[in-house]
């Protein structure tokens, strides 16, 4: 796959604050790419620079090899789906979707057919004549998506696209968005603070912290081989302990309760248990760290050897499952 978008040493400052600090990343054609980070990490500023609402002080943004850093938003083959959706309240669903094609000056028959087509794909056809205030949150989200997709952009930017939806709808829409991205064949760059969402949807994830790019890789890479302690902690759950002046990290699912056949073994006290359906999460206090270890016990294992709060149990692991951080 060829490179569609290149962000090349881009820096953006607001007064004394450096919001984005020399960030470089490449997005490939047809990729589902996620910008992930806590609030204030600079991910939204990167997205706004891609859309054209902010101009970088340093560096270049290349789309199809052309520098677009200073091209205004209305002249970029890039569309943004706003976190607030920003639907035009005085226009109908069909009017909102047609707007971007009308201002482009396309002939009416083409507008009608493209709007009709995208409303079929996004299942909005029954609501064509409704105003945004007559729609549910999920329907508005689909209008915002359809309005951007109908423009057939080279690059679609999505700012926390599922942020306003409830948990159950979110989970369904994560898969829905991924399927849609595959069907329409448009490159997606999504901004999210939800690491789980990024891992589920994206082909590759860029993790930002304080305006800097910390790590960029596939979900598997960033989960299994976090570049630093921040990433390890931000993505998923991680247990940390100090050993010989180094920080050692291990995922809960790599720890084995009862330490059968593991290289390392310590004793700990169960201070809390949480039932998660498929598994039981244990908080185990040990001498190794001040924070309790988070350990995962499958429901099946828990049935065979029940564990209760207050029990002293051995936990163990293999050193090949640990990660070492020096920062």
């Amino acid at each position: 796959m060829s490179t569609l978008l290149s962000v090349d040493h881009v820096t953006k400052r607001f007064g004394a604050v450096t919001a984005v600090d020399a960030v470089s990343l490449d997005v490939k054609e047809n990729e589902f790419f996620a910008l992930l980070g806590p609030s204030g990490s600079g991910k939204t500023t990167v997205l706004r620079m891609l859309a054209g609402f902010e101009i970088p002080e340093e560096g270049r943004i290349l789309l199809d090899g052309k520098d677009i850093s200073r091209v205004p938003p209305n002249r970029r083959p890039v569309n943004l789906m706003f976190q607030s959706y920003a639907l035009f309240p005085h226009m109908t669903v069909a009017g909102n979707i047609a707007y971007g094609l009308e201002v482009e000056g396309l002939p009416r028959p083409e507008i009608t057919s493209r709007v009709g087509e995208i409303m079929e794909i996004t299942e909005l056809a029954p609501f064509a004549r409704r105003k945004p205030d007559q729609l549910s949150g999920g329907q508005r989200q689909r209008v915002a998506l359809a309005r951007a997709l109908v423009k057939r952009p080279r690059l679609l930017l999505l700012d926390e696209p599922l942020g306003a939806l409830d948990k159950k709808l979110r989970a369904a829409m994560q898969l829905e968005l991924k399927r849609l991205q595959h069907d329409v064949g448009i490159t997606f760059v999504i901004v999210t603070h939800d690491q789980e969402e990024a891992l589920v949807m994206a082909d590759r994830v860029a993790i930002l912290q304080d305006g800097r790019l910390v790590q960029c890789g596939t979900p598997h890479e960033v989960y299994e081989h976090p570049a630093n302690r921040f990433t390890a902690n931000f993505i998923g759950v991680m247990n940390f302990f100090d050993e010989n002046g180094r920080t050692v990290a291990i995922r809960p699912e790599r720890l084995r309760v009862f330490a059968e056949g593991t290289e390392r073994r310590i004793e700990g006290t169960v201070i809390a248990t949480a039932y998660h359906g498929l598994d039981l999460q244990l908080h185990v206090r040990t001498d190794l760290s001040s924070e309790p270890f988070v350990v995962r016990l499958t429901a099946e294992a828990a049935d065979r050897r029940p564990v209760a709060e207050g029990d002293t149990i051995p936990i163990g692991w293999n050193t090949s499952d640990t990660r070492i951080f020096t920062d």
Binding site: N74, L80, S84, F88, Y99, G100, V103, A148, K151
Partner: peptide, 15 residues
């Protein structure tokens, strides 16, 4: 007026 409405319009190609 939500300023994002003007941004959305510009993003969709309007002058």
């Amino acid at each position: 007026l939500n300023p994002e409405l003007a941004e959305a319009s510009s993003d969709l190609g309007a002058s």
